[in-house]
């Protein structure tokens, strides 16, 4: 089974700050990391490979720094990686990302399964998996917590709907599945594997032109603007009045805030 895991590099939300005066992200101290939900997808892929055999390939898109994501995936256990890079992919939006990754999946050839993380940290929306499925014309399933391959070219997917409740769906392969963060925790890379991840020939870097994508296919579908910030936290209000009216007021307040 050839499994492709889409992995992206994001700004670590813990180090990303918001500038109130400029109404934009303050990225001066921000650190780039591998999107953690994507590591859950990689973990699911590695478990599938252990069960049925095959190959796990990490697929990433980004600037030269995204090479770190590929190396980390290989250190965790991926067999090899494909990085779609070049000046034309800097700042591309969702539609173009899906097209480029689709071209990458077609380039890798004979792929049975594409896994993605549930959502990108910091500013993700979780729409990559359905976009890829639409481009590839494959079946799709979101928020999988467990994947179990079946013999007749199908995969049994357990999906979490709400805490403790889910449903089982069967998908025909090839398929695109987004893996929920509630699934198995990603493994730590073995130190020896980390050292060997920089061996030559493991990460293939490919430009969009080589994948057959022109500039028209990569045009932006949305334009990112400034941030809208919630009002600054001020000193709390006081609910005045006798106990009974205050209790009434609090109940009304909790209703409007949808806590009751």
């Amino acid at each position: 089974m050839r499994i492709v895991v889409c992995m992206k590099q994001v700004y670590d939300p813990a180090t990303t700050r918001i500038s109130r005066s400029r109404e934009e992200f303050d990225l001066r101290g921000a650190v780039k990391i591998t999107n953690t939900p994507d590591k859950h997808a990689l973990e699911a892929a590695l478990r599938l490979r252990a069960a049925v055999g095959g190959e796990v390939i990490a697929l990433s898109l980004g600037d030269a720094e995204a090479d770190d994501v590929c190396r980390e995936a290989i250190a965790m256990g991926a067999d090899r990686a494909l990085l779609i890079s070049g000046p034309e992919v800097i700042g591309v939006t969702g539609r173009a990302v899906a097209r480029a990754l689709t071209a990458g999946v077609r380039y890798l050839d004979a792929v049975d399964l594409v896994l993605t993380g549930q959502v990108g940290l910091t500013d993700g929306t979780g729409s990559l998996a359905p976009r890829l499925a639409a481009e590839l014309g494959w079946e799709v399933c979101l928020d999988a917590v467990r994947l179990a391959p079946m013999t007749d070219g199908q995969i049994e997917v357990t999906v979490a709907c709400s805490p403790g409740v889910g449903e089982i769906v069967c998908l025909a392969l090839p398929a695109v599945i987004s893996v929920a963060t509630g699934s198995e925790r990603p493994r730590y890379a073995h130190p020896a594997r980390i050292a060997n991840a920089w061996a030559p020939g493991l990460v293939e870097v490919c430009s969009c032109t080589r994948l057959g994508l022109d500039a028209a296919a990569l045009t932006a579908d949305v334009e990112v603007g400034g941030l809208i910030l919630p009002p600054e936290r001020t000193r709390g209000q006081t609910i005045v009045g006798p106990t009974e009216t205050a209790a009434d007021e609090l109940v009304g307040l909790l209703r409007t805030k949808r806590i009751l």
């Binding site: 969702g94 539609r95 899906a98 929306t125 979780g126 729409s127 998996a129 359905p130 976009r131 499925a133 639409a134 481009e135 799709v140 979101l142 928020d143 999906v159 709907c161 579908d221 949305v222």
Partner: peptide
Amino acid sequence: TRVGRILGAGLAQRLDGGLCGH
């Protein structure tokens, strides 16, 4: 919803539309 996310993002891709996913 899960169905809305699948159909919405897929439809945007097929119709060449612009999408805000969330």
